[in-house]
Write a protein that binds this DNA or RNA. Structure first.
Lengths: 418, 418
DNA sequence: CGTTTTTATGAAGGAATTTTATTTAAGGCG
DNA sequence: CGCCTTAAATAAAATTCCTTCATAAAAACG
């Protein structure tokens, strides 16, 4: 911590963290690093690397693989000691509580998902207590499926719609009925002895994108979590934008720009306009001929407006339905304006579209980019995420991993004034 | 730096920085700190404090005041050694190049201004080369006034309208005609051997406000630099929002909300509406009677719309002119919308209005706050800055001080692999 | 089997911290 | 005036981390 006074114990902690980071970053199939590799990678001296690595071995997060794999001894001289990260020295739990479903993932320390589950909330009128019971049940079940005992779960991170205060209580309105004031941290703490962190889902989506999605290590990124609702996570200079006390921080400003609602996610907006189109086509005197505007979408949905989904519109656009393309473009207007505003204000290098609709990036991005060129002088890169619905739970796992690692390393540098 | 490997030299640098910071933070009239005070303040052991303090004394930024002030020896035992920050061990130069004037300040290491100057650009059609010549001349002159030689100026920071790239070149359009592409860093480097930093003026205003203005140490602040033009500086989680490569990051989004221009600063907007009001009153058949709407403003300006200034409108409002109050409210609309958007997006705890119009906070803030309650669900604190026109140059000095201190401390921890 | 090559590891040295003990400078008081 | 108390400076020793250097060890090659 920056407030600590610098003593030699701090040096050890910092250097151990560097070694651990190098080992953890390796892909599982090439996890092993010789001490020589570590010396090259960290710039530290060989004895220091040895000491730190052995220390980490004692603590259990690093293993020395003495039994070398078959005959692949490359060099000439004395063989290196080889270390590798022990990914299953602990696990973390990530949870994404959405409006319609819950997604849970258990990951090992390298972030490899070892168990996943998802349930849909059937009845939308189900009360918050019942939802939380379902979430807890699912979480416990997944951990059991992964073959883990409670104490092997080192950290839990829960993402949910709406701002979350420092104590893990949902503030303000959310997309989930009745979740206002719910203490998610306390709820999950009943099942797990590990620390529980609660975070806004859009922030987690951004973290997920920076970890395993499109955002890479970009310093200035905006992440649009788009599905039934529209949310945004931002990061400037590599720092997540949280707002005072983690409070409200959303797309509410869209209401200042006219009749745009932050609740209107891309999927919902596109579906609604697609349904209007189908209804309009059905009302015509003549049935739509294949190849004429509106025909593809009507054909896909059997001419029933209630059966239209966003995917249908996307598919119709792919098949060349010009009316569907128009509906899509209208449905993107809210998102385009949100991105335009954020672009002018924050100047991100990249905007990532994630959530369910990211799967339709192929049809979504061209009109979105085109609209942006009309709205802003300099258009940033706009990409669709490969993580899609997994973005939030991925970010939850990443945040849980970060806290687990911090907790692991902290005792290495005990405060002298303890 | 975080990329460094942790060695004992790093510890020394960090600890020296802590001691220096404690000494620097003291107000000039109570600058002295005994070693006991430093032990208490830093938590470090006494020998360490001694060593670090003596090291700083050798380097010249700290002085040991052996000659104790009169008889005020408090304690019983051996008197403490007393250290104090040597504020004039070096100086920095802050420059604010505005559309209409240049402001320059020389400050000592504690940030006390020892010389200031300001000139107005008379002819608006004067070319950029000439302006820069004027700026350089003024800067050199002020440094000479302060009685300083070139090598005593440890850092120079220049603030100017418009985004600035990493090399100190003004990008994009600015409020200053012809400044696009001007390399301010190179220009100032001709007169000073110290490092020259160029930064956007709104960012500097924010830095200034956090240092000596209303923003205090708030982590999430928005600072509106309002005068002839409207600009914004933001900071979230204590980090300045810069955008990719320090690029554009402004209120351009206002254009998405209708006919609002980022160039319409509060002073200009209010003046324009005040002028319209005076013209309208003048066109009436009957001359305005004292006490009737519009009369105060007309009286203040002799009924001449061209003579109306923003201050006149503010003064008329103070005297109870209801029409002037209406003009003021209209003039605040753009700023209100900008603040509303930023509030919903970033959830700052505080919005600071700075620049020339901040002097009229008494009449400005009530209608602004009222309008905000209509626009956003949760209104943050909105305050007017006491720094006013000094905000940018104050921030420039602060940034220069930061870099000077970094440069001073860095050699304490030489990279082992140099 | 010796040589070569590369790495592991021990030992020494240096630099920063801490704790502990001693010295020093002042004030209080008989 | 001289001794005692007090609190700080400082010296000394211990600790812990890093480094460099030297030596030992283990494998491959001729």
């Amino acid at each position: 911590m920056p407030g600590d006074i610098a003593t030699s114990a701090l040096a050890r902690r910092v250097n151990a963290a560097r070694i651990l980071a190098k080992l953890r970053e390796r892909p599982p199939e090439r996890a092993e690093m010789s001490s020589g590799d570590l010396v090259d990678a960290t710039g530290m001296s060989r004895p220091t690397v040895h000491a730190a690595a052995h220390h980490l071995v004692e603590l259990g997060w690093v293993r020395e693989t003495t039994d070398r794999v078959d005959g692949r001894l490359s060099g000439r001289g004395r063989p290196s000691r080889v270390f590798s990260f022990v990914a299953n020295a602990g696990h973390v739990l990530g949870i994404d509580i959405g409006a319609h479903s819950v997604r849970v993932a258990v990951a090992d320390l390298r972030g490899v998902f070892v168990a996943e589950a998802r349930i849909a909330f059937g009845d939308p009128s189900v009360g918050p207590e019942q939802r939380i019971t379902q979430v807890r049940k699912l979480a416990v079940e997944v951990v059991r499926t992964a073959g883990l005992r409670d104490e092997q779960v080192l950290a839990v991170c829960v993402g949910t719609s709406g701002p979350v205060d420092a104590d893990g209580v949902v503030q303000q309105r959310t997309g989930i009925p009745g979740f206002l004031g719910v203490d998610l941290r306390a709820a999950l703490a009943r099942d797990f002895s590990a620390q529980v962190y609660v975070e806004n889902d859009c922030n987690l989506a951004l973290i997920g994108e920076r970890w395993r999605g499109r955002a890479g290590a970009s310093q200035d990124v905006v992440c649009l979590l788009a599905g039934e609702r529209l949310g945004v996570g931002m990061c400037t200079g590599g720092t997540l934008v949280r707002g005072q006390a983690n409070s409200a921080r959303d797309l509410g400003f869209l209401s200042l720009m006219g009749d745009y609602s932050r609740d209107d996610g891309i999927a919902r907006a596109v579906r609604r306009r697609g349904a209007s189109l189908v209804a309009e086509v059905a009302a015509r005197d003549t049935p739509p001929l294949p190849g004429t505007p509106g025909a593809e979408l009507s054909a896909l949905t059997g001419g029933d407006p209630r059966r239209v989904s966003a995917s249908d519109v996307f598919e119709a656009v792919r098949r060349g339905d010009l009316d569907a393309a128009g509906a899509l473009e209208e449905g993107l207007e809210t998102a385009a304006r949100a991105i335009a505003t954020l672009t002018m204000l924050l100047a991100p290098e990249l905007v990532v579209i994630t959530g369910a609709v990211a799967a339709a990036g192929d049809v979504l991005l061209p009109p979105l980019r085109r609209r942006l060129t009309e709205l802003v002088p300099r258009v940033p890169r706009v990409e669709a995420s490969p993580l899609r619905e997994q973005a939030v739970v991925t970010g939850a796992v990443r945040l849980a991993l970060d806290t687990a690692e911090t907790d692991f390393l902290d005792p290495l540098a005990p405060a002298p004034t303890a």
